[in-house]
Design a binder for these strands. Structure first.
Lengths: 339, 339
DNA sequence: CGCTGGATTGCAAACGATTACATATACAAT
DNA sequence: ATTGTATATGTAATCGTTTGCAATCCAGCG
């Protein structure tokens, strides 16, 4: 029957109307008469017609796709944001292309490429390490930064990174910890900076000292968490509590110190950031700061679609709240518990 | 300068040739004279021309995108396969659309939709729960099944699921375990079936009995692993070793029993499947069966591109080897260790 | 000198949809 | 009856490439 897929011409012929009417029936049903509308719809059903997205996009001068730039697709933290993005973009007839900035040599160049290639109607940036300068490209498509704010008037979905970090520190301090350390994300990342700032503020507000040798550098990955664990174990004087800038690092860290015979939270309290799925399944369950990941994706997508429709390049910054989740990886410091 | 992006017309004008020649220079350089080729290329550079993928796709009757159907984008197991897919598809100028079968109501209908919509030049199936019958759609684009074989002449990238499971059981038996249980994936999934078959074979080959009450049902998720743990804890007579059909379930399971005071591997040996990143970071580090995930993605993409080029709908089945990875979550059964 | 054939290049028709503009019709108001 | 207005539909240009076919040029050959 349908050797080739039906085109709008076929539908028009079957329905006895022009292609214009068919197109209108499908996009703006209200402007066609009820009787013709029915005729067209039944012709559509009969022929099994589906609009050819490529042709439609060409004519409408859009690509129908949104590019999402993220540092590491394998990080479960991002996948949930992707789910949120997809839940908004798919119904709006946008495809979602995912680009991994770590797969190529230069993330900034990758971004620049996408900005000029015209391959997408918009971009979502999930990588806080990208340089804001690259965005100065003239005539670029709309861009939304998710998770953090990179400065300028770039619209973004922000999370209370600083407040989350400060809350974590305050909680540890209230448990009695006076020696609190931190494992950061990669240097230069906006998330790293804001969480580090929050960590400092938290210490300051509780009247605790900031010791540089208790601030270890990581890169958000499990491996870097395990590496930080080795550094912590080697310290002459160890902090009794640690706030890590990501749950992934906390997983790597906890596993490593536990295998070295350290008890969590007996010997060391651990707080992560993100509340990835595994956090509640660890032993002990990981105390952390929850980010509503699906919501972040949804908001970012909404912001972007709005910019695409209105042709704007700037927009508001949406601030999303975080929540401290107390689980079993924290407790009073050993000295206190003993005494 | 370039208010609008340059079109092939602009390049042709600047180079003093026809658009046909520009197009040919870019796609089949060998057929144009060296001097014209240079002229065109410098005109391309001067104008900053990038081919409009939409127009190109329309003319060439392709969509330029591949759809990947997977059950759960948040599962880290899949993300690495995606990375493998992308590493082949991106250079070949294909975009990768990701569709989550769990986000909608009916996975099979979603597949059917994509098969008829003409939205993609090919599909990659990563969800073993899909029905092979849906693929009978006439005129459908090429499809590759990754991870397992669904029957028929559907080309696929297979993994030695059965052998992997059997190896795990054999290893546990050799450690002295006579009471070995299993936690399965979701019913009806091809992966579930082949791993369960391998589990049975492993038991049989070691002369061990198969006890139905030691085969618990899961769905590959951490939560279902934790649920299985509760069932295991409630058993009057417990197996001393457990093979779980996914690492995620093993994570949920181990966390849950550990919090209940059970020692792994002291009281119970645990083996997972997949070797997801976190496996080595757990305490104890998880013994598992490694699947080369990136390789699976690469092979699947290669197979698919080949089918697209040659117009084939059937193809070979690529078999990928698995590897048993011994870590610290297994040991001799308590009785033996004590005696 | 005319012809053949290979190498280049140009012409123009697709690809399938959308939409500005023109046209047609019906009906109310003057 | 005429004009105006609103509603509904058709006509045809257009989006930017690719590519079959025709045209051109030039060298080599009989």
């Amino acid at each position: 029957m349908d050797r080739k897929t039906a085109t709008i011409q076929d539908v028009a012929r079957v329905a006895g109307v022009s292609t214009a009417t068919v197109s209108r029936t499908l996009s703006k049903p209200s402007v066609v008469a009820a009787t013709t509308r029915e005729a067209v719809l039944s012709a559509v059903a009969e022929t099994g017609y589906r609009v050819n997205a490529t042709a439609s996009n060409l004519r409408r001068q859009r690509t129908g796709s949104i590019i999402v730039l993220l540092p590491n697709i394998a990080n479960p933290f991002f996948s949930q944001i992707l789910a949120g993005l997809a839940s908004v973009l798919t119904p709006a007839q946008y495809g979602m292309l995912i680009a991994d900035t770590q797969s190529g040599p230069d993330p900034d160049q990758l971004l620049g490429d996408y900005l000029t290639s015209g391959q997408a109607d918009g971009l979502v940036l999930l990588d806080g390490s990208l340089s804001p300068e690259v965005l100065a490209t003239p005539g670029r498509p709309p861009v939304v930064m998710a998770c953090e704010w990179m400065g300028g008037d770039l619209p973004s979905v922000r999370v209370e990174n600083g407040r989350g970090a400060a809350t974590a520190v305050a909680h540890l301090a209230r448990l009695g910890h006076r020696a609190i350390g931190h494992v950061t994300g990669p240097r230069g990342n906006v998330l790293t900076e804001s969480r580090l700032d929050g960590f400092r503020e938290g210490l300051a507000s509780m009247g605790l000292p900031l010791r540089d040798d208790w601030v270890l550098e990581g890169d958000f990955s499990m491996d870097s968490g395990a590496a930080a664990a080795r550094q912590w174990l080697a310290l002459a004087e160890r902090p009794t509590a640690l706030f890590l800038a990501s749950d992934e690092m906390a997983v790597g860290f906890m596993g490593a110190v536990q295998r070295a015979g350290v008890s969590v939270p007996g010997d060391l309290s651990v707080v992560g950031f993100d509340n990835i799925e595994i956090a509640q399944h660890l032993s002990p369950a990981l105390t952390t700061i929850r980010q509503p990941r699906t919501l972040i994706g949804v908001r970012a997508a909404e912001l972007l679609l709005d910019m695409i429709e209105t042709g704007t390049r700037t927009g508001p910054s949406d601030l999303i709240e975080v929540e401290f989740i107390r689980r079993d990886s924290v407790g009073p410091p050993a000295a206190l518990a003993a005494g």
